[in-house]
Write a protein that binds this DNA or RNA. Structure first.
Lengths: 263, 263
DNA sequence: CAGTGGTCTAGACCACGCG
DNA sequence: GCGTGGTCTAGACCACTGG
């Protein structure tokens, strides 16, 4: 028995899930049932199921009629290249909303605005002095009423003073990218970072994440011809989102993936 | 006490980490010390530290001289757009290796080859019949001797029969992208997917992942003018990697991020 | 009310590895 | 050797929620 007891139990249950014997939404045996089946104490059984929870396979639901159920994976696809490319100045919020709707879901957003002092990390990205001011525009995005992703965008304070709409605590109808372009700050280059990590407690709350859910962090820095003018942190709940981009001749891709046709 | 005990303990320790009172590599108090400090049983203390472990903040090291230490985050940056763009037929393996070396680390790889039958998901991506054959070329990539990422690339079997080198169970010096281009299969479009999730047990073993480590999955489908010819699954250990791409006028980005200058 | 998981205790023995 | 975390047991009381 090289493997400890709780790992053996977890493996058996995991195999039942990956093999399809247990499907999405199905219930695992209850803890007392597992205790009896494996002749183990409750803590051992819980150690086993805790592994599955942290792998994102299973969700625990307390209360009568609850239990441990196999998690569902509904994946929303977000096209990072469609929103706000230089040649296609679509509104970024509209881009997200229309993607959601096109995939058959209902979209809504919560918006908020804060004035902040920039951390050294952010100041470096925006190429300004540390502790200089910035406008933080936060947008929590809901799919079918469930929080799905979160966008934090920082603009240097001097830009916001020039373009006062950035200070308005509500959504900008045509999208900020278009607004900035109309006012002579066209973004002509993007620096994109993709990072996978576990959420902070704040992110867990804002996105309503289950234990065992990673986040997909997409950091986009936008540049005009002269300087960086904004950094966006897109935080996606990893169990409900993926990001897609394309390069090269997209007509070929559309031929084999009809859903990718650029409208 | 709305918050349970173990969450309070976890919060205090987490704050010490995020505030900098505990730095990367530092040791947390031992379990007996935490029991005494918080007057809690060992299991409660372990529930608390388990949270930190699953958040990827802390690593447990058994044995005398071990303990619980704040995890280090060494981030390797991988430029998804540099490798194998149509206009820049750099060898993909060389591209990865040179990135690692440029960032001051030592690079090595383990290569293996398998002939497989395609799952329906993969068959769809490659636009061939389900259960048709494919060559799987796997490359486990090490940074400073530590496994860092994993690349699984699938080629349709008919392509491998035309280009026999794909069946050779070793690395292709000039890179497969260049090889395919030289033989009349130039990739002119890419479909990229980015996904964040917890690892499977197999991935955990191959990459030597700690609990609480998510993976960053980058799926790239390459197309010639006529059809998809390969799917690559790049699986990155989330605690040691990020992916970067750029769009638009990269000279501007290079001006503000000198490290991004295209060599 | 009854059954689910959530939290917590107080013990026990073990494997590992530095000193 | 001996202190670290790894595993496991046998209990207890609680909060929640469907029937």
């Amino acid at each position: 028995m090289a493997q400890p007891r709780y790992r053996q139990i977890a493996s058996e249950l995991r195999d039942q899930i990956t093999s399809g014997a247990l499907r999405e939404g199905d219930r695992l045996p209850t803890e007392p049932q597992l205790q009896e089946r494996y002749r183990a104490s409750r803590n051992t059984v819980r150690d086993a199921t805790a592994l599955l929870v942290n792998e994102g396979l299973v969700q625990r639901v307390p209360g009568r009629g609850g239990g441990m159920i196999v998690r569902r994976r509904v994946t929303l696809t977000f096209h990072a290249h469609r929103a706000e490319m230089p040649a296609r100045p679509t509104a970024e919020t509209d881009a997200w909303r229309s993607e959601v709707v096109a995939q058959g879901y209902e979209a809504s957003q919560d918006f908020s605005l804060t004035i902040k002092s920039l951390s050294s990390d952010l100041a470096e990205r925006l190429h300004v002095e540390p502790d200089s001011g910035a406008v933080l525009r936060r947008c929590v995005r809901y799919v079918n009423g469930q929080p799905s992703s979160l966008q934090d965008t920082y603009y240097p304070i001097d830009l916001a003073e020039e373009i006062r709409e950035l200070l308005s605590p509500k959504d900008i109808p045509q999208g900020t990218t278009k607004l900035l372009a109309d006012r002579g700050h066209e973004q002509v280059a993007y620096y994109d970072e993709y990072i996978s990590r576990m959420p902070t407690p704040e992110e867990t709350n804002l996105l309503g994440l289950q234990p065992g859910t990673a986040i997909l962090l997409h950091i986009r820095t936008g540049y005009t011809e002269h300087r960086p003018i904004r950094v966006s942190f897109n935080i996606f709940a990893g169990d409900r989102n993926q990001i897609v981009t394309t390069h090269g001749d997209t007509r070929i891709i559309a031929k084999f993936r009809p859903a990718e046709a650029p409208e």
